[in-house]
Design a protein around this nucleic acid. Structure first.
Length: 209
DNA sequence: CAGAAGATCATCT
DNA sequence: GATGATCTTCTGT
C-alpha cells in the first residue's frame, strides 16, 4: 500500500505525544536513486524547557527551524560527520522537535547497503546518524516539509503500549533536570545502541550484606 | 577570534 | 569499555 503522509495536525501537538505516536510510523525519502524507507522504532522528544534541547537558550541560526511550523524537518550536523533528523512539533514560535533515532528498513535495503558500506544489515539505520546516511538525509533536507514532498512521514500501525519502552526519568514526569524522553519498541533488534534510561529498580530491601 | 562541546559512530582492546 | 575522527556552533574575551 502507498504510504500516506501524516497531516500537519499530527505534529501540532505536545512533543511528548508526537514522539510516542511517531513510533510505528514510516519515514520515506525518494531520491533519483530510488526510494528508501523504514519504520520508526525509536524517537526522542526535545522540549524548550529541556537543557539538552538546542533551543533551550532561545533562537539561534541553527535551531531556527525548531520554531517554525509543525511538520518541518530540522536537520543538523554534529560531531563533525553526522546528520540528525528531527520532526518539528508544537505550534509556530514554540520550539519543540522529535529526534528520529532509529528506523527498521522497509524499502530500498540494497540502496542502504550501498550508502552505508560493508556493515551488518542490523546497523543500516540503527541510530540517528546511521539512518540519515542510509536514507540520504543531510543539509538539503533541513526545513523540508514532512507532510508532503520527497521526504515525508507516513502513518503506520500503532505500536501497542506494552511494546513501547518509555524513558521514565528518574523522579517522573518532566524534563527539567536535563533528561530527554525516548520512546522505543521494546525488544526490537533495530533500535539504536544508545542507552535507554530506565527508572531505578525499586529496592525491595535496602539491606546489603 | 580562540576554545570547548557536541541529540554519534566505527573500531579497537 | 575506551578512543579517535572531524567540523559546526556557540560562548566568552
Amino acid at each position: 500500500m502507498k504510504p500516506r503522509p501524516l497531516a500537519r495536525a499530527f505534529f501540532a501537538r505536545p512533543t511528548l505525544v508526537v514522539a510516542r505516536d511517531l513510533v510505528g510510523c514510516v519515514l520515506v525519502h525518494d531520491t533519483d536513486d530510488g526510494r528508501t524507507s523504514g519504520k520508526i522504532v525509536e524517537a526522542e522528544a526535545y522540549t524548550e524547557d529541556d537543557p539538552g534541547c538546542h533551543a533551550f537558550r532561545g533562537k539561534t541560526p541553527r535551531n531556527a527551524p525548531m520554531f517554525e511550523r509543525p511538520g518541518t524537518a530540522y536537520v543538523y550536523f554534529t560531531y563533525g560527520m553526522h546528520w540528525c533528523l528531527n520532526a518539528v512539533t508544537e505550534r509556530e514560535d514554540v520550539a519543540g522537535a522529535v529526534l528520529i533515532r532509529a528506523v527498521e528498513p522497509i524499502d530500498g535495503i540494497e540502496l542502504m547497503r550501498v550508502r552505508r558500506g560493508a556493515i551488518r544489515d542490523r546497523d543500516l539505520a540503527r541510530g540517528p546518524g546511521r539512518l540519515t546516511q542510509a536514507l540520504a538525509i543531510a543539509r538539503d533536507q533541513n526545513r523540508a516539509d514532512l507532510t508532503r514532498g520527497s521526504l515525508f512521514i507516513a502513518a503506520g500501525e500503532r505500536v501497542p503500549e506494552e511494546a513501547v519502552a518509555a524513558t521514565p526519568r528518574i523522579g517522573l514526569g518532566n524534563t527539567q533536570d536535563g533528561r530527554r524522553w525516548r520512546f522505543a519498541v521494546r525488544g526490537n533488534q533495530w533500535v539504536s545502541g544508545g542507552k535507554i534510561e530506565t527508572a531505578p529498580r525499586k529496592r525491595v530491601s535496602s539491606r546489603r550484606s
